[in-house]
Nucleic acid binder design. Structure first.
Ligand SMILES: [Mn+2]
Ligand SMILES: [Mn+2]
Ligand SMILES: [Mn+2]
Ligand SMILES: [Mn+2]
Lengths: 217, 217
DNA sequence: AATATTTTTTAGGGTAGACTAAAAATAATT
DNA sequence: AATTATTTTTAGTCTACCCTAAAAAATATT
C-alpha cells in the first residue's frame, strides 16, 4: 500500500463507493488528476481486489477496500483531534497535515495517540472516528435543511471543506452549540438560527445541507 | 524534495559528510540499497547542488545540503521527544516512527509541536536538536572511553542504535544519571561505573565509545 | 434516427527510485 | 610490476504514478 493508493481508496469511499458506483469523472474532480490516471489506478486497485469495476460505469469498494478506507479515516481523524486539541490548530487548518500524517502512522503510533487523546469519538468537525477493527460507530444526526421551524438542536457535524469551516468560524457556529431554528425563507432562502440567549445567525440555504444536527427531544 | 532524497542527505551527514568525503560503499551499507542506486542518487543530488562529488572518491554536503540535513534532523528529534514523552515510547522504540514522520512535517506543525513539548534541547538519547535556522547548539561532551579512573560525570548522550539502547535500558544507564568511573580493565577490558549510592555497573569496552558524558568539575 | 457532446479507455511517454550484470577505475596483494 | 580484489560507474530494466492525444463507448440533443 502506498500513500497515493490510500488516498485514492479514501476518495472512492468519500464519493459513496461503499453503496454505489463512483464514476471516473468524480474521481478526476476530487483528486485533480487526469482521466487516464484514474483508469490506470482503477486497474491497479482491481488487480489487488480492493475495488470492483463496471467498465464505462465506475468503481465500488470491496470489503477489503472498505476496511482500508475506514482504517485510513481513523488515522486521519485521530491526527485531526491531536492537531486541534494539543497543537491549537483551528478546525479549518487540520486537514492538510492530517492528510499526510495518516500515511506514515504505524498501528502502535495510532493506538498510543488515541489513548493520549483519551479515545475521542469525533474529529474536530464532528466526523465519527472508525474503530480499530474498521467498524464505524452509529451516530444519529439530521441535515439542518430537513429541520422544521421551532426545532431545537445541537450542532453535531459539519462538512470539512476548508473554506466552509472558515465561514462557520466567522459565523461562530461550532460543534455542540445549541440553537432553535427560528425561520426559513421560502424559495431556497436563508435560515435563521437563534441561540438560547436570543442571538440570531443567518445561514445560506446551501450551507444547511452541510450542517448536521442532533435534535433535542 | 522527496523522502528518499531527504533520508539520503541525512545519511551523508551522519557518515560525516559535513567535514569529509563519504564513500558510496558507506552509503550502500547505511541505506541498504545497491551501489548503482547510490551513484544514481548522487548524480541527482549533484544536479541540485546539494552535494559535491569527487568521482570514485565520494560525496560531501554543500551548505544547501547541510541545511536540509539539519532541518530534517530537527524534525526527527522533535518527533522522538514527542513519542517518548507524550506517547510513552521507550528510547529504543522512537526511531522508526520518527524516521517516517520527519518527511511529512510542515514548518507550522514542527514549530507548534516544539512549543507543545516546551522547546526541548535534546532528543531521548541526548542528541542535540538543531535550531529552526539550521544552526546547531554547541554542547560539550566527552566519550566515556576517554575518561580516567576517579572521574565523576553525568550521562550526556548515547549512540542511537536500537539494540544498543536496549542494552543500556537493561544496564539501567539513562540520560542524566551520575556515575564515577571506578575501574578500567587493561587490554580493552570492561569499565566499571559506580553510582553515588555505591551500585556498580560493568560496561563493555566498545560500549564506552558510544556513551558521551559531561564530566563534573 | 442521426448527430453532437461527454466520458472512458487505449496508446505512448516521462520521472523518481529501485534493481542486476557488466565494464571501468582504484586499491591491495603478491 | 603484474595480478587480484574491491569499488564505482554505466547500461539496460522494472514499477508506481503521473501526463497528453487519440480512439472508442455512452449519453444527450436535435
Ligand atoms: Mn479531514
Ligand atoms: Mn492523505
Ligand atoms: Mn533517531
Ligand atoms: Mn526518514
Amino acid at each position: 500500500m502506498t500513500p497515493n493508493k490510500e488516498d485514492f481508496i479514501k476518495a472512492i469511499f468519500e464519493l459513496g463507493g461503499k453503496e454505489k458506483v463512483v464514476t471516473n469523472k468524480d474521481l478526476v474532480r476530487m483528486l485533480s488528476i487526469s482521466a487516464a490516471s484514474v483508469t490506470d489506478m482503477n486497474t491497479r486497485l482491481l488487480k489487488e481486489e480492493l475495488i470492483t469495476h463496471l467498465p464505462y460505469q465506475g468503481v465500488m469498494l470491496t470489503e477489503k477496500g472498505l476496511l482500508i478506507a475506514n482504517q485510513l479515516i481513523r488515522k486521519h481523524r485521530i491526527w485531526e483531534v491531536f492537531l486541534a486539541e494539543k497543537l491549537g490548530y483551528d478546525w479549518n487548518e487540520v486537514h492538510a497535515d492530517a492528510d499526510l500524517l495518516e500515511h506514515v502512522s504505524s498501528d502502535l503510533l495510532i493506538e498510543r495517540l488515541n489513548i493520549f487523546l483519551e479515545e475521542p469519538t469525533f474529529d474536530p468537525h464532528g466526523g465519527v472516528i472508525p474503530n480499530q477493527d474498521g467498524t464505524v460507530p452509529e451516530i444519529h444526526s439530521t441535515p439542518l435543511i430537513e429541520c422544521r421551524v421551532g426545532d431545537r438542536f445541537k450542532i453535531q457535524e459539519v462538512d470539512d471543506q476548508e473554506d466552509f469551516l472558515e465561514y462557520l468560524l466567522y459565523k461562530k457556529v461550532h460543534l455542540g452549540k445549541e440553537y432553535t431554528l427560528a425561520e426559513i425563507e421560502p424559495y431556497d432562502g436563508p435560515l435563521t438560527l437563534e441561540t438560547p440567549a436570543g442571538e440570531k445567525t443567518v445561514i445560506g440555504h446551501k450551507a444547511a445541507f452541510k450542517i448536521f444536527v442532533d435534535i433535542i427531544e
